[in-house]
Amino acid sequence: MNTELILSTYNSPRALVLTLLSVARQVRRPDSVCVADDGSGPDTAAAIAGVQARFPDLPIRHLWHEDRGFEKNVILNKAIASSQAEYLVFVDGDCLIHPCFIARHLELARPDHFLSGSLIRLDTPTTEAVTEEDVLEGRVFDRAWLARTGTFRRFSTRLKAGLLPKWAGHLLEAVYPVGRNWCGANGSAYRAAIVRVNGLDETMKYGGGDKEFGIRLENSGVKGRHVRFTAPLVHLDHPRGYKDAEKIRAHRAKIRHARSSGKIRAEAGIDGHLPRKGT
């Protein structure tokens, strides 16, 4: 099964390099990596080129569009539309993935399911202190290292870091009482299932777009399945100057509508980026 990892990014070259280094350490690498770039400056292109030079056997394509504000859903739809892969895994370009991350997503891949994980969130001082060696040597996933940084403020975070043996984590994921919402920072699905629901809603900016997309997948018959405790991912802290309270309120209304109406397809979605038949 051909697989592509889609990384969303915007003007965060240091975080993106760390993320790509964690991809290079995968026990089962994706067949390709797409950096879905929401309008970054030239430093991001230079960062990608630097990683590609260090790991020439890691196929990376850089998909960029002009900066028009927060249009993550648009660039993700463009990445999905242009992908040649059968199965797509999604993370943000400020997330470090465990060496077994891709392998776990592929182990559970099913046409009638999407997978949704979670994040281990680092605070700002820890984020600033993370080095490339920490990623390449795997220290960022070492439970003792995470404990020393104060990351384990909740027991659930210890579970997300792989505290349980795999069989126990697998069992807990099946019964854990948390909604199986799509998580764009740790999610995966068959490309065909995503195309059927017309991808992500491009009218939605920051806040709620993931959940609305997951509801439409569910409405189409593609149900959510947790990888909450068996696909660890460490999130680097960053400011969110693009948050807009008014847009978030409007997005909540769209989420309620998608849930109550059984809506499947986005009106403004991936269709506009797919090649037309006969062309």
Rank of each mutant, 00 (worst) to 15 (best):
D134Y: 02
I215C: 02
K160Q: 12
D94E: 11
V222R: 01
I215T: 07
F101E: 03
T203K: 13
G278Q: 08
D123W: 03
S32L: 06
R121D: 15
P56Q: 08
A253K: 11
T127N: 11
Q26V: 07
K247E: 10
A45L: 14
T44K: 10
R228G: 01
I255T: 00
E71Y: 08
L115N: 05
S220N: 14
C100Y: 12
R249E: 15
A129E: 14
P125C: 07
K211W: 13
A174L: 15
S156C: 00
F152P: 00
H65M: 15
I60A: 05
C183E: 10
E66M: 13
C183Q: 12
D271G: 14
L63K: 02
P42Q: 03
E267H: 04
S40Q: 10
N73P: 00
H98A: 14
E133D: 12
A168V: 12
R153C: 06
G272N: 02
H235L: 10
V175Q: 01
D67T: 02
D92T: 12
G199N: 07
P239H: 11
I120Y: 05
T149P: 00
H98F: 13
E86C: 01
R104L: 04
W167D: 01
E267K: 03
Q84C: 09
L76I: 15
K205I: 09
S118H: 12
D67C: 13
I270P: 04
G138R: 00
V130K: 07
N219A: 03
E4Y: 01
G208P: 06
R139V: 07
L146S: 09
H65L: 14
T19K: 12
R158P: 03
R259L: 12
W145Y: 13
K72R: 08
T127L: 12
D210C: 12
L233Q: 11
A258N: 01
F213Q: 03
D57F: 14
S260G: 03
N73I: 00
R228W: 09
T3Q: 01
L63M: 08
N198L: 12
L20W: 08
S261T: 13
R68H: 13
V227C: 10
I270A: 11
A46Y: 03
F55M: 03
V140D: 09
T124S: 09
G93R: 10
L108C: 09
G50T: 09
L171M: 05
R25T: 13
A24R: 02
P42N: 01
T149Q: 15
G262T: 02
G39C: 05
V222S: 02
P13H: 03
R29E: 02
C183H: 10
T127E: 05
Y242Q: 14
L106D: 00
R154S: 11
S82Q: 13
D244F: 07
V89E: 05
H65G: 05
V17I: 15
I6M: 08
H98V: 06
T127W: 08
P275W: 04
R110L: 14
Y87V: 00
E212W: 06
F101G: 04
G199W: 13
R110E: 15
G162H: 00
V175L: 09
S12Y: 10
G138S: 02
V23D: 07
T3I: 07
L233T: 10
V234L: 12
S82V: 00
E267R: 09
C34D: 01
A53Q: 15
F152L: 04
E267T: 04
A81M: 07
L119N: 06
S8E: 06
T126H: 02
L21K: 11
L217Y: 10
E4R: 06
A168I: 05
L236F: 13
N181P: 00
I60H: 03
